[in-house]
């Protein structure tokens, strides 16, 4: 018995060691750019203009942050990002949960067909729809350089509808029947019975949407032209001066842009993990 189990334990130890080393390397790879960004943002311009900041800085300085806020419309960009991400979070949570509920629990003709058509649109790469979308927004609707133009195309996403459908499917149908017998109208059933029960799913959806909207670069970049309408991500990209680039200030901007996401992630970690497993067990 002992001779059999010993090699097994040893090979298990070896596997764990290899896994540990790989994970450590992965962690370093993930953390180094973030660390570099932070360190770069805390050193003065002379040291960081070369874009080779010392990994262990000798003197810390908040000068890059001061320059970042002084030379750019950073507050406006942050406000824009916050506004766009918040509105998108609300619209996605509201519409995706409505649609998800309908697909999961209501019987209506063609529900399956509509759902599959919606799902199939996820197969179309975003780049394919970009030009028609741009033409629609700019030429037809004349909405260029407005919040509406940034928000409208992703006001509700199919991926979120799918996520909500999976979540809603796991809620007991008898509750809906009970509410119907309890003289509850259809919208009130959704509002008073389903939404409160779907809170964990809604939280996951809200966080994912907020993060994705905050980090969104290409569409806001394409549809906005004035400095005042830029989001923080677009603003950072345009942070190039005519003669030289102030990398210190750029790193400061990047840090400020990433900070809300980091705070969000660390404070709501369990919802992120839940988001990964939704639909994995039930649905």
């Amino acid at each position: 018995m002992q001779s059999q189990s010993q090699p097994q334990t040893q090979s298990r130890k070896l596997m764990l060691t290899i896994a540990g080393i790989l994970l450590l390397l992965w962690t370093i790879l993930t953390i180094v750019p973030l660390y570099w960004m932070l360190v770069g943002s805390l050193q003065d311009s002379a040291a960081s203009a070369s874009f080779r900041p010392a990994m262990i800085p000798e003197a810390l300085s908040l000068a890059p942050y001061e320059r970042f806020f002084a030379k750019t419309a950073a507050w406006r960009w942050l406000f824009n990002s916050l506004l766009v991400s918040s509105v998108l979070t609300v619209t996605n949570v509201f519409f995706a949960s409505l649609a998800g509920y309908a697909f999961a629990k209501l019987k209506f003709p063609g529900s399956n067909a509509i759902f599959w058509i919606l799902l199939s649109t996820m197969m179309i790469p975003a780049q394919v729809t970009l030009i028609p979308l741009y033409i629609l927004m700019v030429n037809t609707l004349q909405l260029q350089d407005t919040y509406t133009a940034i928000i409208l195309p992703t006001a509700v996403s199919v991926g979120n509808i799918f996520l909500m459908k999976q979540y809603m499917s796991s809620l007991p149908t008898s509750l809906i029947h009970a509410a119907r017998i309890d003289a509850c109208g259809e919208f009130r059933i959704f509002w008073r019975v389903i939404l409160p029960l779907a809170k964990p799913g809604l939280a996951v959806l809200a966080i994912f949407t907020f993060v994705a909207s905050w980090n969104e670069f290409f569409w806001p970049f394409l549809i906005t032209s004035s400095t005042d309408m830029r989001t923080i991500q677009v603003g950072l990209a345009s942070f190039v001066f005519a003669e030289s680039t102030d990398f210190g200030a750029m790193m400061a901007g990047a840090t400020i842009g990433a900070l809300p996401m980091m705070i969000l992630f660390f404070s709501l970690q369990r919802y992120f993990l839940q988001g990964i497993t939704i639909g994995a067990v039930k649905g």
Binding site: S174, A178, V193
Partner: peptide, 10 residues
């Protein structure tokens, strides 16, 4: 009024 198998309490 109906009583359900799984109670269906909110």
């Amino acid at each position: 009024a109906m009583v359900f198998q799984d109670y269906a309490l909110y």
